[in-house]
Every structure is written in C-alpha cells, then in structure tokens.
Computed example of a mutant assay.
Amino acid sequence: MTTQAFNVGDAVRKHAGYEYPGFIVAVFTTRAGAVRYVVEADHPAFTGMLHIFNGDQLELRASAPSA
C-alpha cells in the first residue's frame, strides 16, 4: 500500500515527458492498494481534461496556470 503525497486542490504538474499542469480533483486507492490522483488540466490547450497519475509522476507547482 502506498501513502498519499498530494491532496485535493494541490496545484501539480507532470515532471517528465509531455506538459500537464493542473489541480488534484480526486484521490483514490486502487484495489491493489496504490494511491492514484485525478488531475484536471489548466493548460490553455487542454483545459478541463482529466488524467489519472501515480504520485511518482507529479510534483507541486505554483497555482498560476501555465501558458
């Protein structure tokens, strides 16, 4: 079982690969016990899109949207 590193409302971004800045809108645990985060994008190109990440893919950021 993994521990929760982020909370609903936290401003985060995916730290590697494609850009994905947003806000945590939900936190849940899989049946296997892994914590997952639903991030709602706030990037102008895909505002409102939801994506599920594990905690290792995310890092905290300033709450202002990316340009």
Rank of each mutant, 00 (worst) to 15 (best):
F46C: 12
T30M: 06
N54W: 09
F28D: 01
E40M: 15
F53V: 02
V39F: 12
R13E: 10
T2N: 12
Y18T: 10
A45F: 13
Y20W: 15
A64L: 15
G9S: 05
M49N: 12
V39W: 08
S66G: 13
Y37K: 05
T3V: 11
Q57I: 00
S66L: 13
E19D: 13
A62C: 11
A67Q: 12
I24P: 01
P44C: 03
V8D: 00
T29G: 07
R61E: 04
G17T: 00
D56A: 15
G33P: 04
G55K: 05
D56W: 14
G17R: 02
N7Q: 13
G9D: 02
P21H: 00
A67F: 09
F53M: 03
T47F: 13
V27L: 07
A16Y: 13
A32S: 11
A64Y: 12
V8C: 02
G33Q: 06
T30I: 01
V12Y: 04
A41R: 02
R61N: 07
G55E: 03
Q57R: 05
G9M: 04
F23C: 11
E19S: 13
A62G: 15
T3H: 15
A5E: 09
D10M: 06
A64C: 12
G33Y: 07
F23R: 15
F23Q: 12
A26L: 07
E40I: 06
G9C: 04
H51G: 01
D56V: 11
I24Q: 02
A41V: 00
A11R: 00
V38C: 04
H43E: 08
H51W: 11
R31C: 03
F6H: 08
G48H: 08
P44F: 00
H15D: 07
R36K: 14
F53H: 01
L60W: 09
Y18W: 14
E59Y: 05
V12I: 10
D10G: 06
L58G: 04
R36L: 08
L58A: 05
G17W: 03
T47N: 13
T29Y: 10
V39S: 08
H15W: 13
R13I: 05
I52K: 07
V39I: 12
V35F: 05
V35Q: 05
A11I: 00
A32F: 06
A45C: 11
A26Y: 05
M49S: 14
G22N: 08
F23K: 14
T30Q: 06
P44L: 01
F46I: 06
A64S: 15
P44A: 01
H43Y: 10
A62S: 15
H43T: 03
F28Q: 01
I52V: 15
T47V: 11
G48R: 05
L50H: 12
H51T: 04
T47G: 10
T3F: 15
R61T: 06
Y20D: 08
V38G: 01
